[in-house]
């Protein structure tokens, strides 16, 4: 969490430092055209909005993950945190799907900028299908787990697994709704400005979800145990 906050603080700090915060406004009259970069942002509102929204989502996941790490590191509990979750091979497949989805969207965006509408459409579809495959794959993982006796309530570690993957999956589904709209916009085959923006925003959102998934994945696979150890060392 602190790491995430530091990143947010760094970004806001950089932006604020560009805004002439030390100027003495009562000495300056006139339109501010003379001071470039201090006016309203020229980014599209939707893009800025997405940026802010991603900060919120990032905060959400950072908190969930910190909570998880904190639990892993609270050793004074007298009941064990339950057996480690197995990392089924399916998870690798799902990860691949999500990467594919992300790449396809990136590609779609490039093509949208070059107005190659056919490619855009194909890539958007690929992205949508592979994202759906990811979600379906995650559901399969859940089923495999419950079948082998790892229920939601078996142990807090399990609960965290279901919660993290569930919340992430919901975000992917939410993104799919937006992607659906973008596909509808791209279908007529004309490169309109809103369509291009839509593709770009989807791509950014997807990369972000991929990043979060990779972090969650590494936690599940236990690769982050060393990191958890460091946290524990810091806390105790």
């Amino acid at each position: 969490m602190l790491l995430f906050l530091a990143v947010v603080a760094a970004i806001s700090g950089w932006w604020l430092s560009q805004q002439r915060l030390t100027s003495k406004p009562w000495l300056e009259e006139g339109v501010q055209g003379d001071f470039p970069g201090t006016g309203a942002s020229s980014l599209p509102a939707a893009k800025l909005g997405l940026g802010v929204f991603l900060a919120v989502v990032g905060s959400l996941f950072a908190l969930l993950i910190s909570a998880y790490l904190m639990r892993v590191s609270t050793t004074s509990l007298n009941i064990l945190d339950g057996p480690k979750l197995p990392g089924p091979r399916l998870l690798w497949f799902n990860t691949g799907m999500l990467v594919l989805s992300s790449v396809a969207l990136q590609w779609a965006w490039l093509q949208a900028r070059r107005r190659q509408m056919d490619g855009v459409r194909v890539n958007l579809l690929v992205a949508a299908v592979s994202a759906l495959a990811f979600v379906a794959g995650q559901l399969l993982v859940w089923r495999q787990l419950t079948q082998s006796g790892y229920f939601l309530t078996s142990s807090p570690a399990n609960s965290f697994f279901y919660l993290l993957t569930g919340v992430h999956g919901l975000h992917v589904l939410g993104g799919l709704a937006a992607l659906g709209r973008t596909i509808a916009r791209a279908w007529p085959g004309v490169a309109t400005e809103p369509m291009r923006l839509g593709v770009e925003l989807c791509a950014i959102y997807w990369h972000f979800l991929l990043l979060i998934w990779l972090v969650v994945f590494s936690l599940v696979m236990g690769w982050a145990d060393d990191f958890a150890d460091i946290c524990r060392a810091l806390i105790t």
């Binding site: 942002s41 909005g49 929204f53 400005e193």
Partner: peptide, 15 residues
């Protein structure tokens, strides 16, 4: 929630 963001496109600054 994602939808909200994409709801209103347009690159003209609101101002």
């Amino acid at each position: 929630m994602g939808e909200v963001i994409f709801g209103s496109g347009g690159v003209v600054p609101a101002a």
